[in-house]
Nucleic acid binder design. Structure first.
Lengths: 225, 225
DNA sequence: CTCCCGTGTATCCTATAGGATTATTCTTGA
DNA sequence: TCAAGAATAATCCTATAGGATACACGGGAG
């Protein structure tokens, strides 16, 4: 998790482009799109050649990803993508989500701006379309991630927002691996949550998010059978 | 936050010593002991010379610390220790603590082992001695950190444990900076918590932790006045 | 046929050198 | 005396080379 005490969540002033950040985003995207499969090794030399940069920025990016838990490093062997989640960690992740997300929804009910709310509606609309099979599942997963991220952001607590962002990163990889499809039920839950937020009803928003996360747990839990 | 999907929280098998880890721990200790003051710059060259290693492991360690939020990096300027917390972030941190720690105490009430419980008593005893002024405050802060960390560990949820560990890292720096002293009241709160845990009373443990964190907030909140 | 062991290749880890940028200091002029 | 500009020094960033280690393959002995 990046607590980042010094630099505000988003940088208002111009920041000279850091080569390391670019590399970080590239590797991050390759992990998220499963171009790099879980558990497979990641060669520093190859990455350096492919991206046309030196080894140093690669190492920095991989170190940051290691602190984030997305890659692991073994001495004298190298980096490799983190392996898939097991049941224990899956349960722990949902336990934490169930603690943070309903709380974030509650706070968002009173703090969300009209602009953020409009974005929320738009995301829900796009996801509804994807429920009709017109959008690929990876798009749905991306939209769903933005949906939850926006609510966490609207909670006003940056720490909670950053913590949840990390959790959802691992959620995304988990979903992609099992290519879950049933998205139609999630849409109705999102609708209920949006209604509660529109009414500025904190209790209802918290409860709606709780139900949504619990249902999500039930849906994915079957993968472990 | 290190989610570390692949390597279990503690490594059972022998791991060849990584030079980067050693450097990481050294810099981490220097930050925690305020040998490196908040906001001050951190020279890579100097560190490399002082520690007798190359620049590469220094960079890796600093990148990990950056992901953790303890240092910040500015392009073409270098690394510097994170600046002191402001009021907004302080409130956010306690809001998150108040969400996680009582929950962890509740779970720990049913899951804590007798061995862990003994360690808890020992820590509380040492802190009580420090309340009589026989131990320095930095020692008290360290013991208190171990106390809370152990409860988070006993909760059985590694993710919550790791998240709280990061939060307490920043708490430690905050306390050290303001060199808070009043520790006597905290000891009675710890005693109440231990009693609840001993009785395996989940409700009481959760409530005791909640009160403890809230009181802690009140104590430190005066620094912003 | 199986197991053990030596060699070769690939990769990581470290160290050093060169280019680029910023901060500091000194000089000069008003 | 103060301000502005230039030169120097320090630092970071990148690139490349050399040493060390682990993994893979193939040959030989039992």
């Amino acid at each position: 998790m990046a607590i980042s005490t010094n630099p505000p969540p988003s940088n208002p002033i111009k920041r000279p482009p850091r080569l390391g950040d670019e590399v970080y985003n590239t590797i991050y995207a390759q992990l998220m799109s499963q171009k790099i499969l879980p558990g497979s090794r990641i060669s520093i030399d190859n990455l350096a050649r492919e991206m046309g940069v030196s080894q140093t920025p690669i190492r920095e990016a991989l170190s940051r990803l290691e602190a984030q838990g997305l890659v692991v490093k073994t001495h004298l062997i190298g980096f490799s993508a983190a392996s898939q989640m097991d049941r224990t960690r899956f349960d722990q992740l949902y336990e934490l989500r169930l603690l943070l997300e309903p709380f974030a929804a509650r706070k968002a009910a009173t703090l969300i701006t009209t602009e953020q709310f409009d974005t929320l509606r738009r995301l829900a609309a796009e996801m509804a379309v994807s429920g009709q099979g017109r959008v690929s599942y990876s798009d749905f997963a991306r939209l769903d991630g933005q949906f939850h991220d926006l609510i966490a952001l609207a909670s006003g607590n940056d720490l909670i927002h950053e913590t949840l962002a990390n959790l959802h990163t691992h959620m995304h990889l988990f979903r992609l691996f099992h290519h879950q499809q049933a998205a139609s039920t999630a849409n109705t839950e999102h609708a209920e949550l949006i209604d509660a937020l529109e009414a500025r009803d904190a209790d209802r928003a918290e409860q709606a998010m709780r139900v949504h996360v619990e249902r999500s747990y039930d849906r994915f839990s079957t993968f472990f059978s």
